[in-house]
Amino acid sequence: MTGPDTERRLAEAMTALAGQVHPAPDAYRTARVQWRRRERRRRLVLALLVAVVFALAVLAGLWVLNSAPTGSGTAPEPDRPPAATAPPRG
């Protein structure tokens, strides 16, 4: 029962099985609606993820800027004149 006879019987069985399969009349429309729904959900999840990452980055940046010690900036204090960078000529 091996060889060409088995292959022929298997091909006949598959042909008979394929002849019994009939797609639903609105199968394409249903599949398209489901695909669009999944695509919208995927885009919404991605947009939310980007927004959360952006918000976390902004919060981390504000936290770092706020946690800097006072008076450590490069701008001179308003009540003191700027330090001289070169010795005076004269």
Rank of each mutant, 00 (worst) to 15 (best):
Y28F: 10
A57S: 12
D79W: 15
R89L: 15
T15P: 01
V64Q: 14
A11P: 01
L46R: 01
A57Y: 04
F54Y: 04
T70Q: 13
V50H: 02
R38Q: 11
A27E: 11
G73A: 07
V45E: 13
D5R: 13
G61A: 15
P23E: 03
E12L: 15
T6P: 03
P4N: 08
V50M: 05
S72D: 07
R37I: 05
L56N: 00
F54N: 04
V33R: 02
L49H: 02
R9I: 01
F54T: 05
L44V: 09
A47Q: 08
A83N: 01
A13M: 13
G73S: 11
T30S: 06
L49P: 02
L17N: 04
L62T: 10
R37D: 13
G19D: 15
A11C: 03
A16W: 04
A18K: 12
M1A: 10
A68P: 07
R29C: 03
P82W: 15
G71S: 00
P87V: 06
P69W: 08
T74Q: 08
R29S: 02
A24M: 01
T30K: 05
V52C: 09
F54G: 13
W35L: 14
A24R: 03
A86I: 10
L44F: 10
R38C: 14
W35A: 15
R80Q: 11
P81H: 08
A51N: 04
E12A: 15
A47L: 06
A84R: 11
R8T: 09
A55Q: 00
A55V: 09
A31G: 03
A47F: 06
P76F: 12
S72W: 08
R42I: 04
L46Y: 02
G19V: 04
W63A: 15
E12I: 03
G61C: 10
A13W: 12
T85C: 03
P4C: 12
R40S: 05
A31Q: 04
T74S: 13
A47N: 08
L48P: 00
P69V: 06
E12T: 10
A57Q: 07
A31V: 03
T6G: 00
R29P: 00
L65E: 08
G19N: 15
N66M: 07
R42L: 09
R38K: 09
A27R: 11
A31S: 05
R41I: 09
N66K: 06
G19H: 12
T6A: 11
A27F: 03
A60S: 15
A83V: 15
R9W: 09
T30I: 05
P82H: 12
